[in-house]
């Protein structure tokens, strides 16, 4: 999957969390939150990362941002391997790689005004040393996200959820990043506000040539914003393809089941449609199944799936799936 236009390349990313095993902590175990994930994002592209709760999509995002140190694997951002950088080197890279969080209520420091929040990165990284220029820049940032310069004097609790999320976006923009990891940026918002924020993200992408990793569980939002989509299940990518190909011709049985769970806003179509309903629960990442991790719930599993681990392979041009039967 090496691509020369890639801004970000993730190779064999693994993040294990150790649980228990303390003095009174019970049996030690390893949660395989992310278990060998590889993908690349081209400059200016939006890669959607979907999957259900606990599949490791947020952890993947956090590893890319180096908020969690990966257990193994490589993260190459703009030609630099982040896993090998020291603190000072990482600090320089962080300017070009930003994040938007899910919860607009906990993502802003309640003791700082919006202006202070937006000015802080400019001061720390010495981007705009002049005070008056900084104020102007804060006003400009607020305008970019559809707020007013006057909002700089407000505290986060004086704003609505949607407005706070806009501030979160402005904060990410402040450092003029190349990549923004959007960690479920609209999941906590009302549907009407969701559309505004998604449109805002698209506008900003066009205006500043941003690259997004868009982590979400809402398939319709991901379809709207992404160029390519990756589907995760139990710490692994099971399918990755262009948006069109993935939504219209899913190759992995898990992707098919996910897509069939999305309601279609037409009662006639909905009544005639065949739903793929998965049995059972997602297995614990403490003790994932052998072979294909999806086989206990897969409607088309055969004996081979129990023992053989499927690798992500290019089934059709640009369309990768990790299924032995695809």
């Amino acid at each position: 999957m090496t691509d020369n236009g890639a801004l970000l390349e993730v190779r064999n990313l693994v993040k294990h969390f150790h649980v228990g095993g303390g003095l009174f902590g019970g049996a030690p175990g390893v949660v395989r939150a992310v278990d060998g994930v590889s993908f690349a994002i081209r400059r200016g592209e939006t890669l959607g990362l979907v999957g259900e709760s606990g599949c490791g999509k947020t952890t993947t995002g956090r590893c890319i941002l180096q908020l969690e140190r990966p257990t193994s694997g490589e993260i190459v951002f703009d030609g630099q391997n982040l896993t090998k950088l020291d603190d000072a080197g990482l600090r320089r890279v962080r300017r070009r790689m930003q994040v938007i969080f899910q919860d607009p209520y906990s993502s802003l420091n309640p003791r700082m005004t919006i202006g202070q929040i937006l000015a802080e990165p400019l001061v720390v990284h010495g981007l705009v040393p002049d005070r008056a220029a900084r104020e102007a820049r804060v006003g400009e940032l607020l305008r970019h996200v559809g707020l007013l310069p006057q909002h700089a004097h407000r505290y986060p609790h004086e704003l609505s959820g949607g407005q706070r999320q806009r501030v979160g976006i402005a904060r990410a923009l402040a450092m003029e990043p190349a990549l923004i990891v959007c960690d479920e940026p609209v999941s906590a918002l009302d549907v009407s506000i969701q559309a505004q924020i998604v449109n805002l993200l698209e506008d900003l992408q066009r205006q500043f040539g941003l690259t997004y990793l868009f982590v979400a569980h809402d398939l319709s939002v991901v379809r709207h914003i992404s160029d390519r989509v990756a589907v995760m299940y139990l710490g692994k990518i099971v399918e990755i393809a262009g948006r069109q190909a993935l939504y219209e011709d899913p190759l992995h049985p898990y992707t098919r089941a996910l897509l069939s769970a999305v309601p279609i806003p037409d009662p006639d179509v909905e009544a005639r449609r065949v739903h793929v309903v998965l049995g059972g629960e997602v297995p614990s990442p403490l003790n994932p199944p052998a072979g294909c991790v999806f086989h206990p719930r897969c409607p088309i599993a055969v004996d081979r799936c129990r023992s053989e681990v499927p690798v992500l392979r290019e089934v059709k041009p640009g369309h990768w799936a990790a299924c032995l039967l695809a």
């Binding site: 956090r62 962080r94 994040v99 969080f101 420091n109 990165p121 720390v124």
Partner: peptide, 10 residues
């Protein structure tokens, strides 16, 4: 999340 944001901002 704002502590994570501060860390991500370097």
């Amino acid at each position: 999340a704002y502590v994570d944001a501060a860390r991500a901002a370097g």
